[in-house]
Structure formats: C-alpha cells, structure tokens
Amino acid sequence: MTHDARRITIAPDDAGRRLDAVLAPLCPGMGLRGRRRLCDEGLVLVNGHPRRPGHHVATGDEVVLVDAADGTTGQGKAGPSTTGPSTTGTDTAEAAMAARTSAGTTSPEGTACDAEALLPAPGPVADPTGHPKGEDPLAPLRPGGEAHAAGLRLILPLDGATDSPPPTGGVPRLVAVYKPGGLHSAALAGGRAPNAENLLPALKLLNRLDGPTSGILMLAGDTAGERQWRKAEDEGGTRKTYLAVCTGRLERGTVVRAALDTARRTVTRVRPCDTDDRLRHTEVVPLAHFRLGDLANPITDDSAGVPACDETVTLVCCRIRKGARHQIRAHMAHIGHPLLGDDVYAAPASPPPGRMPLFLHHSRITLPGFSAACLPSWLECLPDAAAAAARRILLDDEGP
C-alpha cells in the first residue's frame, strides 16, 4: 500500500480489507471510531466516491481523505457526499448506558469518560464485615487510584434498579465494576500479577471472570450485600448475560445442558451426560452472522484489521444463572462453535490469526433489586449490523 499525506493506493495484500482499517496511515493517532466517523461524514473517497466504513477495498483503489474544512483533497474539490446524515450518533438508551460506565474507552471525539463524576462522594463507610471504617472503599476506582489505573471502572445500576439501602457514606451494598480483558479477577496461586480483588480491598468479590474475559464483576459493600447476592444465585434469581463471537455459523438458538467437570482442573472437561441443574445450563442465541474479514482488529493501535477471510463467525448472546469455571467457553466448544480468540478450547484449525483477544464479555447482570450493564470494548470492531444487534439485545434483555 503506497500513500502520501492525503491518499493511498491499495496494494494486492490489502485487497478485501475494510475501508476504516486501511485508512489508518492517513490518520495517525486517530482511533477506529474516529476513522469510521470520517467515512460516515463523506470525508473518505474511494475512486472519487464516498464510501461507508465497512466498504471492502480492491487492488488499485485510490483512497482519498477529504479536508473537512473546505472539501478538498489537496488536489481539487471533492464531489458532493451521497452518504446522507452521519450515522455515528448514539441513540438515547445506549448513550444513557455509556454514561453510567466509565470503561476507559473514548468517544468518537476522542474524549475520555469522567469516572469521578460517576462515583459517590467520599466518606466513612461500613467495610465488608460491617464495622465502621474511616476510608472510602471506592477510592481506588477514582482517577489516580490503582484500580482506575488498571482499567477497572464503576458501573452505576440501570434506571429502575432499587438496591437495598446503602451503608453510611453512600456506598451501595452491591457494586458493579467493569473489568478489562487481560486483568485477573483474583490472585492466581503463586502469582503476583495485579488483580481486581487486591485492587479493591474494601469490597468483597462475589463473582469471577476468566483473565481474558471482559465485563461486569460484582462486589459487595457489606455483609448484607453479600447475602443478597448469594441468596439470589442459589435460588436461580440471577441472570448473567454475555456477548460473544463464536466460530462458524450458528443458525439456531439452543440450551446446552452438558455437565461439567471443574474439579482440580485448569481446563474444564465436558462430561458425556447432561445435568438437570438449570443453574449450570447455558442458553445460546445467535444474533448476527458476518465474515471474519469484516472484523476490524481490536488489538493493534493502528487497527490493521484481520486479513481478508471468508470464514463465517456468529455474534451470540449467552445467558447463565450461576455458572461454573469456563462454562460458556467449554459449552460453546462442545457444540462445535468455540469462541473467537479462545486458545484453550478452540480446535487447532479454527481461526483467528494471532494476537486476537477472547471475544467474550459479561455485558449485563440482573437480580432482584439490582441490574447493571456495559458494552464490550470490541463492539466498535463489529460490522454495523452486528453491533446494532448487540446493542438491542443488551438494552432489551429482561431479568428472571
């Protein structure tokens, strides 16, 4: 691929890639969302015509970045945009959800969310054992705190959630926190790597996510909050919703009832029998299908994209009640659709190429008196139709 400051010519190796991915050399320092915005506003031309972010380029295509101020490419005026109004605006419901989570991502304008504005005011609180303690247990989540620096962010409950009265100082009995992929929930045996449990010592960790899994961690602000969580889990009153991308084309929804063996194992084994315990079942609902080559690379800073590939993958919604270690990953592999980026349960011949994250995100938690949700950081890497499907299922998901 050859380029100057405002234009690039597509080389054979880049044929088939998305426009928002190949645009990176023209926009150094700009993230994927910003490049998509340029395309949506008609400021990126392919062979003289405005194209959408998901347009697949071909060998020899000339991609030109138009100057937003005067509509020029540096070598003459650009033609009028035919793309219509920008589609980058977020609808009201999604905007409200995003405002309730400071997940460390940036807006299309590149401004970071303000975590401090989401946190209760500091003050003396009750610690997890119920004894007064003159410190703010959420302080590590504030800008400058160790938990904040590690990528952990507070998630406020969804509108309508009515948590039990909080302890003195305003810290709720149940606290939802966003965990980025790559950070462990708790300390591993013999390990010294940072983990959420140690970074939030004044809160009681209630659930765990695998290291590469992102999404909602639940913690208790006091013993009453811990009892509330345990009771809901044991009675099947919790509903944990995950978004994931699996390999292959999953056509129909299913409930995976296969029993799991997690005893003294680093890899969960699927037993050759089903379990009647619905707390250990996994409900799987396909949301959208797309080509692996349509997925923008969520890892590299330059969003180089995934090599052109006709392999079909499926965006799925997975729901569990209580869950077991690696339950969703093991169950998805068991039905022949291991998760994208799973280097433990995926078959050797499965995509993707190296450096791909695990596409598994705990996106919503609902139990009596509490509900919270957050979108995955890799949502922007999905094709538009798949991303829209993910938003709909998350916003419309109903509790038990």
Rank of each mutant, 00 (worst) to 15 (best):
T2R: 15
I8K: 01
T9I: 08
I10H: 01
D13G: 11
D13W: 12
D14E: 14
R17T: 06
C27P: 01
M30I: 11
G31F: 01
R33V: 09
G34V: 09
C39F: 15
G42I: 14
L43W: 10
V44E: 07
N47L: 11
H49K: 15
R52D: 11
V57R: 05
T59V: 11
G60D: 13
G60Q: 13
L65K: 02
V66T: 02
V66H: 00
D67F: 13
A68N: 15
D70T: 15
T72D: 10
T73A: 06
G74D: 09
G76H: 12
S86N: 12
D91Q: 06
T92A: 10
A93K: 04
A95V: 13
M97T: 13
A99P: 02
G110K: 10
C113G: 12
E116N: 14
L118I: 09
L119R: 00
L119S: 00
G123W: 08
P124F: 10
D127N: 09
T129I: 04
G134F: 08
P137G: 09
P157W: 08
P157E: 06
L158M: 09
L158Q: 11
T162A: 09
P165K: 05
V177N: 08
P180M: 04
P180R: 03
L188M: 15
A189H: 15
G190N: 08
N198R: 07
A202G: 08
L206E: 14
N207W: 13
T213S: 08
M218P: 01
G221P: 01
D234I: 03
E235F: 05
E235A: 06
G236D: 09
R239Y: 09
R239E: 05
A244Q: 11
C246Y: 03
T247V: 12
R252Q: 15
R252D: 15
G253F: 02
V256D: 10
A259K: 13
T262Q: 12
T262D: 12
T266Y: 08
V267E: 13
R269G: 03
R271C: 05
D274Y: 02
T275C: 08
D276W: 12
L279T: 04
R280Q: 09
T282F: 05
E283W: 04
P286T: 03
L287P: 00
D294E: 12
A296L: 06
A296V: 11
T300I: 05
D302K: 05
S303W: 01
A304R: 06
C309F: 07
T314I: 07
L315I: 14
R319D: 07
R325Y: 00
H326E: 02
Q327T: 06
I328C: 07
H337C: 06
D342E: 12
V344G: 03
Y345V: 04
Y345E: 11
P353C: 14
G354H: 15
G354Q: 15
P357E: 07
L358N: 06
L360C: 03
L360I: 02
H362P: 06
S363E: 13
T366G: 12
G369V: 02
S371G: 04
L375C: 00
L375H: 00
C381M: 04
A386C: 00
A387T: 12
A388N: 09
R391K: 07
R391Y: 03
D396P: 02
D397A: 06
D397I: 04
E398T: 07
E398Y: 02
